[in-house]
Design a binder for these strands. Structure first.
Lengths: 138, 138
DNA sequence: ACAAATCCTATAAAAAAGATAGGGTTTGTG
DNA sequence: CACAAACCCTATCTTTTTTATAGGATTTGT
């Protein structure tokens, strides 16, 4: 399951996508819209900013806004940023690869093989669906 | 990612599948084969037994053995048993459904829609691939 | 000058996962 | 029968991860 962090990120991005046009929205407004703790959301938005997805403006009239075109923000990007690997086992992760400690030989591991298949099917959706697809359906 | 519990379950099932023919194998032997703690694995095998996937025999010459035909053990079954939901958000889980607290209206939630798609693609693999597929590739 | 708002980092609290402990029960064998 | 082998069961402990909070620093508009 996705962490709350990631889910909240998606909701916040959706909120900002609806506001649109680089108009800054307040953390406050987003957190109230979804009943998310202000401070928790603050950390999340900051990460999204550092990743180049959001921009921000300080002081009165400030807030966060979407920098990227929603159709250029793949779901996979957000998940990887906040949750880490998408794959179900580390030994088939593309971005967070690690050998499985209990596995002596990856080449002859049957689990490895089927998990590659699962990963590919997940990525097929998550890399191709974007924030724009979420917005379109709201 | 899958928990270690689930990964270990897959490895243990593979081990037992290779032994085959309802010949009981010792916890000890499985745990040594993969470097898994004996006691931790014991709990896992017990759960698999309670779920009707494994059988066991006590006393000398005892152990655990596969009750089911490997091709009747879908990967999804093992994951759900030990890890819970396969879906990435609770509001699209088939077996562990829960509404998302931050979501006011599921019907108009864009995230919900794309996550149904992800879930279906995952299930398409996980319901159709079985222990037999893992065994075949080892 | 002041207030509004983000920025930053640290820490606390809660939950989940991983691991261990230890006695109970069943069963084969001499 | 006695005994040892092996699973059965449930509780607890430890570690890690996740979730949440705290509090001051910095920037900016009026």
């Amino acid at each position: 399951m996705l962490s709350k962090k990631t889910k909240y990120a998606f909701h916040a991005l959706t909120f900002l996508g609806k506001v649109g046009n680089k108009k800054p929205a307040l953390i406050q407004d987003i957190s109230e819209a979804y009943g998310i703790s202000h401070k928790f959301l603050e950390n999340i938005l900051l990460e999204l900013k550092k990743a180049g997805i959001l921009g921000s403006k300080k002081g009165k009239g400030g807030g966060y806004y979407l920098i990227k075109d929603p159709k250029d923000v793949a779901l996979s990007k957000i998940i990887r940023l906040l949750d880490g690997p998408i794959a179900l086992v580390p030994c088939v992760s593309i971005n967070y690869y690690e050998p499985c400690i209990e596995c002596k030989d990856e080449a002859t591991c049957g689990l490895n093989k089927v998990m590659i298949k699962v990963r590919d099917e997940m990525l097929n959706v998550l890399e191709n669906k974007t924030l724009a697809d979420i917005l379109e359906k709201e």
